[in-house]
Amino acid sequence: MDEGLKTFSENNNRNITIVSKVPDVCRKEPCALGIDEAGRGPVLGPMVYGITYCPESRVEELKTIGCADSKTLTEEQREKLFQKLDSLQEFVGWAVEVISPNSICNNMFKRLKHSLNEVSHDSAIGLIRKALSLEANITSVFVDTVGPPEKYQAKLSALFPGIKITVSKKADSLFPVVSAASICAKVARDKALSTWKFKESPFINLKEENKELKWGSGYPGDPTTKKFLAQNIDLVFGFPQLVRFSWSTSEQILKSKGVTVEWEDTEEQENQAVSLKKFFGNSSKSNTPRRHPYFIDRKLKPATKLV
């Protein structure tokens, strides 16, 4: 995992998927696969999706090594558990997708917005596909829900016929294979965040011990996180790409302190369509002669004011 995360830190505006070896036994025996996420809520850092799979017959063994709800574990405990999981190579496989904060905003700020739920679903689906493509014999999938469980269940069942899908709330604490996935995801997120390499020049030379670079948990309610956002704002560019611009916390700070930036909106496009309609109709009422389509296509008009 460390190597994969190093690659991510060099290119932290893009997502990366890190996979373990597929244990031989997982190619033969029917396997259960758990999916969970870490870092969905924070205003900064990546969101990580993780999967863990093992033969259905050995699921309980995960419990015995201590896979429980990752939120009840300390960072140290999680790290140890991950090492343990990773060492069970003969029957446990895992994979994580580190979704960069930039890719989250890019999706949420598309012309047709792609919601965080959709990003989450895409990642989970991608990871299942990844396991299947590596010839893991996945027969059942357990996943913590994102959005309404029934809908998500139906979506996944349709995509993966022949695999038994269980979407439930708190899957993390109910199914050890999900707990294990949650640990993988959480460990990856913590590491990705602690080894974050800023590409923005004002941040490159700031040392870790620098107060300004303490961002806390990243949760919008955390005062350290709030302070970090308020102190590291650039009037034009806003924040470094560590920060998710599409979160209301960062949006609001930027709105009140930064320069306003306006983007084309879809409503405007509708209006444009209307005006074009008019333009093709009877335009004799208008006083200004219409320019040749050549110029209209090119958005060229005779200048009347230079500066």
Binding site: E262, W263, E264, E268, F295, R298, K299, L300, K301, P302, A303, L306
Partner: peptide
């Protein structure tokens, strides 16, 4: 010379 302005709103 004539001067044409390219102007796209946003």
């Amino acid at each position: 010379y004539e001067i044409n302005q390219f102007d796209e709103s946003k």
